[in-house]
Design a binder for these strands. Structure first.
Lengths: 335, 335
DNA sequence: TTGAAAGCGTTACCAT
DNA sequence: ATGGTAACGCTTTCAA
């Protein structure tokens, strides 16, 4: 059962390929009778246009690429799901790649996507990425790109949440609950996302006149082990924190485990609020209070921005999807 | 910065494309001097072979397709991650599609993948899928296919876990802990996976002489709401269950929530064991005892099976990745 | 060593 | 209404 081409149909019917092409695409210039014959033979033999021939002809692939640091991370998985659904509705296929949160793998993924002639790329940068030359090069080559979650502000459209404001809200909420030694657990400080969230945290402290303790700010690698170690170090301080703001889901989970492993109570001894997805919060124990991010909206918006660019819109757009605090059980209910 | 072709290089150097082609691929029949010129110009102008021209020429795309019921489901996400990594190592790209656990969307996804001329497909069927004609058609067209998780035994290679044995082990473990009214929460009974797990459950009960109560067996739609309703119904029985075996992660989570919402204690009032991923169990509260499945191995094995087929191996292989019970905190520790 | 031409599947344009 | 042909980018075969 070989794949059948227009030429095959033409030969079988003893006509010319161009006639077959016209008939198949519903263009006129074909007699009704002949069209019927062509259509029925195409149907019967299972004709499918060869997308590579079409791509070659039009230099268009109806394919986009997606790069994420970890598809298995719930937040990313949901965004990927929305991107894929949105893209499919618009007739695009998605090539999903996983950078393993490493700059080198990320460059490799981008390279493969470019080789595949994707028409656009949606990417969440790896936490390691400090050199943006690979992106600059793509931008210069006029490849449509949209960043999400992590945006180093390098003149590329993006979809992010209101990092500063949400972190400020979280910090205020913790202060309202009586916390005075709030720790900040973040990724690498050079990451804009971390910097912004830390900024919101510091702002809230200053506004309320609560002294900033540098030993309570831990900005290291985003990973379970790193989060575990940092939290344990925090708990070992002469004056340990009475609350933790975790700026990434992994860090929130590891903080929770570290605290539990020390036999401390949440939220009585230490409260936690994290940037964590609904589904994960729902299942954590106690359920972690979190900054609710609308992954579905983020995925859809990201694809829309990409579509704009693919349609020739050159403007750089930054979409901020607003996220806000949802209280669950890892924070004190003082009211 | 337009994409540059061999022809462009040839024109610039005033030579023939075929010479450029030879040089670029390192074939001989090109003078060292000319080769150097060609290579350096290719480098400088950023030449990339056009994969569509290559595909058209060779009828090969170095691309595989993946269809999952829900990429955002942790278990699937991890399998997808492994498939993608393994495929990339082997020089293949992955097109990931999400069937939303619906037969119709699944058929649509397969259609798109076939249109894209993927060289093979790895798929986890939707729970709705009862008509396999779309798969039969692909098989007849000699498209390499590998199923995972859900295998209706229709003569297609697959990677699954030891469903019967693991369910029996789970049931025995619950019986050992003193449970006598064990409920089985499953997907649609027509699904082989559910049937097998139910089989293991029933076998264990019979072996131990524990009467089977049909009112304790709930095989319905796999979804959070359905699991919630079924569990609440179970708890409302005159003689409610003292343990629940949930044959899918979603059902395990919904059972946990239903039980908690009734103010019952886990495991004292009702024990739970579920087919749930490590990561999810780790975060649930109490941590749910689970059947540990090696998603990484499943993903790798699935890709390997696909590779075999893509290399012309026609044999139908069924790989069983062995999974076994891991006790956490949702079961009584009687020993 | 290099060039010329055909072919992969499709479409567009021009001719009949 | 239908046919012929060139073109997309690349490889292959054959000729020079």
């Amino acid at each position: 059962m070989k794949r059948i081409s227009q030429r095959d149909i033409a030969r079988a019917l003893n006509i010319n390929v161009s006639t077959v092409s016209r008939a198949l695409r519903g263009l006129d210039g074909v007699s009704d009778d002949l069209r019927r014959q062509i259509m029925s033979m195409a149907e019967e033999r299972g004709y499918r246009p060869n997308p590579f021939a079409v791509s070659l002809r039009y230099d268009t692939t109806r394919t986009i690429g997606v790069v994420v640091p970890d598809v298995a991370f719930n937040h990313n998985a949901h965004i990927v799901k929305s991107i894929e659904a949105e893209a499919r509705k618009a007739g695009y296929m998605c090539i999903i790649t996983d950078s393993d949160d490493k700059q080198e793998t990320e460059a490799e993924c981008l390279d493969l996507l470019v080789n595949m002639h994707v028409e656009g790329i949606i990417i969440c940068l790896s936490q390691e990425t400090t050199d943006f030359s690979h992106l600059e090069k793509l931008k210069k080559a006029r490849m449509p790109i949209v960043l999400f979650d992590r945006d180093p502000r390098i003149g590329i459209s993006s979809v992010v949440i209101n990092d500063v404001a949400s972190a400020r809200q979280v910090t205020n909420s913790l202060l309202d609950d009586g916390a005075r030694r709030i720790a900040f657990l973040g990724g690498p400080s050079r990451m804009r996302q971390t910097a912004d969230r830390k900024h919101g945290y510091l702002e809230a402290l200053r506004e309320r006149g609560v002294p900033v303790r540098t030993e309570l700010v831990k900005c290291n690698h985003i990973s379970f082990n790193s989060g575990l170690k940092d939290t344990l170090d925090l708990l070992d301080l002469p004056e340990p924190p009475d609350a933790i703001l975790a700026s990434h889901g992994l860090l929130a989970i590891s903080a929770l485990q570290a605290i539990t492993s020390r036999g401390l109570r949440i939220p009585e001894d230490v409260a936690i609020i994290g940037y964590i997805s609904d589904w994960v919060s729902e299942m954590s124990s106690p359920r972690i209070s979190f900054v609710k991010q609308n992954q579905h909206e983020m995925g859809c918006k990201a694809f829309r921005l990409l579509q704009d660019q693919m349609n020739g819109d050159d403007s750089i757009q930054h979409v901020v999807v607003s996220a806000r605090l949802e209280i669950r059980d890892s924070t004190k209910k003082t009211k």
